[in-house]
Amino acid sequence: MTTLIAIVVLGIMASLFGALLGFASIKYKVEGDPLAEQIDNLLPQTQCGQCGYPGCKPYANAVANGEAINKCAPGGDDTIKKIADLMGVEVQPLDENHDQDNSPKVAFIIEEDCIGCTKCIQACPVDAILGAAKQMHTIIIDECTGCDLCVAPCPVDCIEMRPIVQTTQNWQWDLNTIPVTQLD
């Protein structure tokens, strides 16, 4: 008799908790992958595709699913370190297949040479190129992420990547530079 009561009581409790868990899983369901979201926030959002994925979000998803964390060239070591901290894995050096130079650049169209083919416009992941067919194109520097994707499609090689001009606004103090000396 006691055994029976125990079974019945435990059965009722089990079904209760089951129902509760089922309700909670529906009510508090998390849309998307929270880890991928966090990784995406760490990535530099250049959308350059150097990691082999079409944009930062897909790479973030891939990293969340076990892809190597050292494939983001524009982010460089800083980004790798941040992702490693987040994922709780070892910091790796940047993938050797990538350019080591990740200094910030912007695309520049040599406007005299532009033939207005619109190929770069189609390649730009952030719509930072302005122009129309048979009209000269130009880069909106403020929107350009320096992803390099517009350079290859240009049939007349009129796009080049230029380092961002240093102004007093983006200048960085640097104690390790050679001290300023005067030339007379």
Binding site: D40, L43, Q45, G55, C56, V126, W171, Q172, L175
Partner: peptide, 28 residues
């Protein structure tokens, strides 16, 4: 001073990254 400049720069980059992300998503 260096740290302040770096943080300001980082904040600027973050804003830019956010903007790039929005533009990328919009384009997609």
């Amino acid at each position: 001073r260096i740290a302040k400049a770096e943080i300001r720069q980082q904040q600027m980059l973050d804003v830019q990254a956010e903007k790039a992300k929005i533009r990328f998503e919009a384009r997609k």
